[in-house]
Design a binder for these strands. Structure first.
Lengths: 119, 119
DNA sequence: ATATAATATGAGTATAAACTCATGTGAAAA
DNA sequence: TTTTCACATGAGTTTATACTCATATTATAT
C-alpha cells in the first residue's frame, strides 16, 4: 500500500511525462534548450504553425515546464529547469543504446521459451 | 534544421515518455521496480483490474519498457532497463524541489512585469 | 480428456487530447 | 488614435487513448 502523498507524486510525475510525451512539445522544449526563445523563434525552428505552437506552449506553461517573460512585443519562453535537458539526454541514450525501444522485434508473449527460471 | 535521424530519436523518446506519462502505467512500472513480478502480483499491488493491468502491460511491452518471461502459469514482467528508476527518481526530485510543477500559481502570461531584460 | 489458474485479446464505448480556424489582446510604432 | 506586430484564446472537429466486457489462450493439474 502506498501513501496518498506517493500517489500524488506519482500523478504529478505522470502528468509531467505526459506533457513531454508529445513529439511537438518535446521538439519545442529541445528547441528552447538552455536559452530563452520568443514564440516566433520557436515557430521558425519547429516548422509548426503559430497557433499550434501557442497551443502547446500553453500546455507546457500550465505544467510549469516552461516559464515566460515578456519583453516588448515578444514573449520569451525558457525551460523552468534546464537540468531537464540532461535527464532527456540520458533517456535518449537509454533508448538508442538498444536496451529500450531499439529492438526491431518486440518480445514474444505467446510461446516463450520454457527453460527453468526462478527457483 | 534537424536531421531525419534526430526527428526519429525525438519521436522515439516522445513515444517512450507518453507510455510512462500515464498514472497507472507509471504505477505499474514503479511497482515492478528492480524485480520481476507476475501479473497477479502487479494486480494486487496496483489495485487495478486484471484486464486493465494486462491492457497497460501490453502497451509497455510494445514500447519495450518491460520484458516478459514465462514460468509455468505465470508470466513475469521486469523493466527492460532498471536504470529507468533512477531517471524517474531524479525527475521526481525535480518536481518536488519546487522548481517544476510544484508552484501553486502558474506564471502569468498577460501583464508580466516590464523590467529591462535581455540587452 | 477435462478442469482450472493465469493471463491475453478483440471489439466496443467513453473520454481526452491534438489540431484548426477565426478572432481577440497587449505593446509599440506611425 | 490607428495600425501593426507578436502572441493568445474560445470553440469546434478529428483522432487517439483509456477503459470495460466477454471470450480466448496457454500451461498445469486431475
Amino acid at each position: 500500500m502506498q501513501k496518498t502523498e506517493d500517489i500524488d507524486n506519482r500523478e504529478r510525475l505522470a502528468r509531467f511525462l505526459k506533457v513531454l510525451g508529445d513529439s511537438n512539445r518535446l521538439g519545442i522544449a529541445l528547441s528552447i534548450g538552455k536559452e530563452a526563445r520568443s514564440v516566433t523563434e520557436i515557430v521558425r525552428a519547429s516548422g509548426l504553425s503559430q497557433t499550434l505552437v501557442s497551443f502547446h506552449l500553453r500546455i507546457m506553461r500550465e505544467a510549469n515546464v516552461v516559464r515566460t517573460e515578456r519583453h516588448g512585443h515578444f514573449i520569451y519562453y525558457s525551460l523552468s529547469d534546464t537540468s531537464l535537458l540532461e535527464v532527456l539526454s540520458r533517456l535518449s541514450q537509454m533508448l538508442n543504446g538498444k536496451k529500450l525501444l531499439m529492438e526491431k522485434t518486440p518480445e514474444p508473449v505467446r510461446r516463450p521459451r520454457l527453460k527453468a527460471w526462478r527457483k
